Simulated scan of single mutants.
Amino acid sequence: MTADVAVLGVGMHPWGKWGHGFVRYGVTAARAALADAGVEWRDVGSIVGADTVRGGYPGHVAGATFAKALGWQGARVTSVYAACASGAQAIGAARAQILAGLADVVLVVGADAAPKGFFRPAGGERPDDPDWLRFRLLGATNPTYFGLYARRRMAVHGDTLEDFAQVKVKNAAMGALNPYARYRKRVTAEEVAASAPVADPLRLLDICATSDGGAAVVLSSLEFARRHGAARPVRVRAVSTVTPRFPNTVLDLPDIATDSAAAVAPAEVTFRASIARAAYEEAGIGPGDLSLAEVYDLTTALELQWYEDLGLCGEGEAAKLLREGATAPGGRIPVNTSGGLASFGEAVPAQALAQVCELTWQLRGRAGGRQVPGARVGITANQGLFGHGSSVVAVV
């Protein structure tokens, strides 16, 4: 039996700072995805919500919250939390329900209304939370460990500030073409260099913002898709949500406080690379089969690391790949054609879903000025706290 499920529809609420609750953004995205799929909410057999810890109690039961907002109609409900990987794990849960025969059509929704500034650990004193420990014991806010990671790449691989700036230039050019992006303005390398220092060596334009936004995906069985008239739909072929394998895989910097294996020998494969490897194995493909990739660019330096972890190049060769233009539009493997988090900012439960939205538009050939000609296979990748990583492979 094939493990593929069809992507019938996708939808988003534009990213920004809109001043509303997360439910509004999720409902807007859900209705757009349903309209794109050509199905009614009453025909959905299950809804999976990606949780937000910043939305109060409704955010912790996002599936039920969105079901209520759309209008209770008896659908099965699931809520998923996996930090930045929540959206992809929600897709994994939806896919499992479809393959198990529990539902023909599943709606997956994620949305957030993020606070201004860097994310703080939610819920007060939390000594069991690695974020809380990192903040309180090390004084290492998110920008601090982003800077440490960038400095490490410079020391180990010879990456430069100019390389980091070119990642932002590339992604901003794509974001300028994306109607859902928060930042729709091209930038120059000189503007990146002139932006305010945040955590050496990173400048303000090297680091993504926090945003409001929402995204949704309608999945179905292939049989339902064919009955519905979708003869050749985009298909989810793999969803990787693997955890690290001790001691062969250790959590990488910047997960400073969660790296319990720091004293062991160097990892055979990094955690992020293991996420991608599992996706490739499940999908029966390799890096050479990809048409494009959407990766978790919290910073410009982290995007370069993903090039290596996805196998797009060898270790230490990411900056060279970037300089050659391979990851830019028209290159061998365009990365972050959506504009990435550099153009969107973080709306945590929605971002992995937004990546799948971009793959879907690209594989349908409907990405407008961002279109990768002849796109057939795409991959997403992101990493959350506590070993919550994810990767989704979509094909057409």
Rank of each mutant, 00 (worst) to 15 (best):
A375Y: 03
A96D: 07
G284W: 05
I256S: 15
D200R: 08
E346H: 12
A262P: 01
A350T: 01
R227V: 05
A193M: 13
P143H: 04
Y57F: 15
A176S: 14
I379D: 11
A273L: 08
H157P: 02
A267L: 05
W18C: 07
Q305D: 15
L312C: 05
S46T: 10
V264G: 11
R370E: 03
R186M: 09
R226P: 00
V242T: 12
V108W: 11
G284T: 07
T243K: 15
G374I: 13
C313S: 08
V7C: 01
D255H: 12
R134M: 12
R152N: 07
T270D: 12
L205S: 06
T78W: 08
H20Q: 14
Y307T: 11
E162M: 05
A375K: 08
Q166F: 00
D131V: 11
R126E: 02
V23D: 05
T144V: 15
L138Q: 12
S391L: 01
P287N: 12
A276Q: 08
M154N: 07
V218C: 01
V53C: 08
P349W: 09
Q383R: 06
C208A: 14
E282A: 12
K170G: 12
T300W: 00
L202D: 03
V217N: 13
D104Y: 05
S220R: 02
S274I: 05
T141F: 02
Y183C: 13
D36A: 02
A173T: 02
N382M: 11
G365L: 01
D129I: 04
T160L: 07
A62T: 11
Q355K: 11
W132E: 02
H388L: 01
R277C: 00
R277Y: 11
A69P: 03
G117E: 09
P349K: 04
R227L: 11
A230K: 04
F118S: 10
E223L: 07
Q166S: 10
A176M: 10
W41P: 06
A278P: 00
D159L: 02
G314Q: 04
V77D: 06
A30T: 07
R232F: 01
R151V: 00
L202G: 04
T258Y: 14
V23N: 10
K185E: 15
V393P: 11
V77E: 03
K168W: 01
A90K: 01
A32W: 00
G123Y: 06
G21K: 04
L310P: 00
D255W: 00
A350F: 03
G331C: 09
V250S: 15
A193L: 14
S274G: 04
Q383N: 06
I207R: 01
A301R: 01
L133W: 00
T28C: 13
P233L: 09
S195N: 14
H13R: 13
L290M: 10
A318K: 05
A94C: 03
L302G: 08
V80Q: 06
R76S: 13
V356R: 15
T141K: 12
V348D: 02
V250E: 15
P247C: 09
A352F: 10
